[in-house]
Each structure stands twice: as C-alpha cells, then as structure tokens.
Design a protein around this nucleic acid. Sequence first.
DNA 1: TTATATTATCGTATATTTACGATAAACGAT
DNA 2: ATCGTTTATCGTAAATATACGATAATATAA
Lengths: 118, 118
Amino acid sequence: MAVSKAHEFEKDEIKLAELAKALSHPARIAILKKLAKDNVCICGDLVSDLPLAQSTVSQHLKELKRVGLIHGEIEGPKSSYCINPETISQLSGLIDKLFKVFDSCCPPTKPITIKKGK
Amino acid sequence: MAVSKAHEFEKDEIKLAELAKALSHPARIAILKKLAKDNVCICGDLVSDLPLAQSTVSQHLKELKRVGLIHGEIEGPKSSYCINPETISQLSGLIDKLFKVFDSCCPPTKPITIKKGK
DNA sequence: TTATATTATCGTATATTTACGATAAACGAT
DNA sequence: ATCGTTTATCGTAAATATACGATAATATAA
C-alpha cells in the first residue's frame, strides 16, 4: 500500500473499507456463508470445503477474526468458528448508509416505488 | 496474490468479492459518495476533495471504472465521471443475498422480532 | 507418557496495491 | 501554431495479500 492515508478519511469510510476488504476474497465470503449455514463449524470442515491449503484457510480465518466478523474458540485440537452478529450488523448499517447516498443520486433500483420529484 | 484460485469459487462469490474489493479503500468510497451527491463530477473536483495526488485519484477512478461501478467520459481536457446504477444495483442484490444467509444463522439484527427458539 | 489429529504460525515466493512525481496526451483559448 | 489546463499513463518504490510447505503447538486418545 505504501504510506496509507486512511487517517485522512471519515471514520465510517475507513471502517466500511476495512470490512469490505474482508469480503474482497471469494474464500472469505465462502467461509462466512458456511459459518452462517452451520452456525458453528470447525476449521477442518472449511479446509475440506475450499480449494485451498489448510494454512491458507487458517490465514483467511485469522483475517476475518481480526476485523471482528467471526470469532473462534480453540477447543482442544480443534477450533470452532462462528459468525459475530454484532459486526455483521455494523456492516449492514454502514452499507445501508452508503446505499442511501446512492439513492439520492441514481434512480432507486430495488422496490420500485413511484417517486414524485424532478 | 500469487496463484489466484478465484476460479474455484462460485460465480456470485467471485463477483461480490470483486465489487467488495472496489469498496475496500476509503478513497474509493469517498469518490462514490461524491459522485452520488453531485450526480456528475469532474476529476479535478475529486482531486481537491481527497488527500491524494492527482495520479493516485486517477488510479482509483480507473479501478472503479474497471469493475463497472462508475463510468467516465472524457470531454475535452476534463473528464466527468458518474455512478453506474446498474452495477450498484447488482452489488445491492449480491449483498442482500449474502445477508439473507446471515439471517438464517444468527438472530436477525435489525427489526427485532421475537422468535421462538429451537 | 507417547502417539494422533488438528490447527496456528513461520518462512518464503510472487503478485497486487497504493502512492508519488514526471511525462505524455488532448482539448480550449490565445 | 503555441500555451495553458486537465487528465491519463509510465516508472518506480514500498507495503500487503495470497498461497504453499514445513514446523510448532495443543489437546485428546491410547
């Protein structure tokens, strides 16, 4: 990155960027989906699901944990991970806020309700 | 990245990851917000808004353009950019889909409705 | 205590990202 | 045609990210 200037931006922008970065790899999205479906899941299951080496999966888990999207507990030789609903909720809020800005710009895209206005 | 294995994942995961990566820098979020507010905006305005060199801003714009989140037209010596609602809408859809998966896992976070437990 | 299984970490190689200054390109104005 | 303004691209440097194999760590099972 070289000389990150992240501190020059708004707090929300920085946080959203950080969370978006966590979602910026298909493996991490797949991990989150798997964790969501299974509610709790041990690392080994993820490794056999993904086309990646065990150490790589572990790295992705670490990153997801770092930003708070999941937490993991080491129980014995196995580690079980699960979604952290709080951060998911935070992400949801930040995304909603961003998309509200988009609505102000472009015609609203989703539930098409007729809007008066120029 | 080294030996990207993106092709081993689902199409939606890859696309969402790509769009999330575009959002993974505060400058690009700031650019999108500015474009949304101003509807259309020339590069120079963005440069003076952001704590980054002109060439760096241009790079970020290029990346946003590459993934289709904005389009830009070169009119004369100035370039004007604007949001591409189609890709915004696509992103919105992919995010909604992902968050639906989360709802299935964790207690729903937003409109708190009492649910009978398992 | 000694295996066995599972996961984290280390070391390493390579690709990508981010940033800047310098330069090129493109158009409008003179 | 030349100048000035604006933007894109090039070259480059440094930080991150991604991936793997090898190894260390840890708890369970024997």
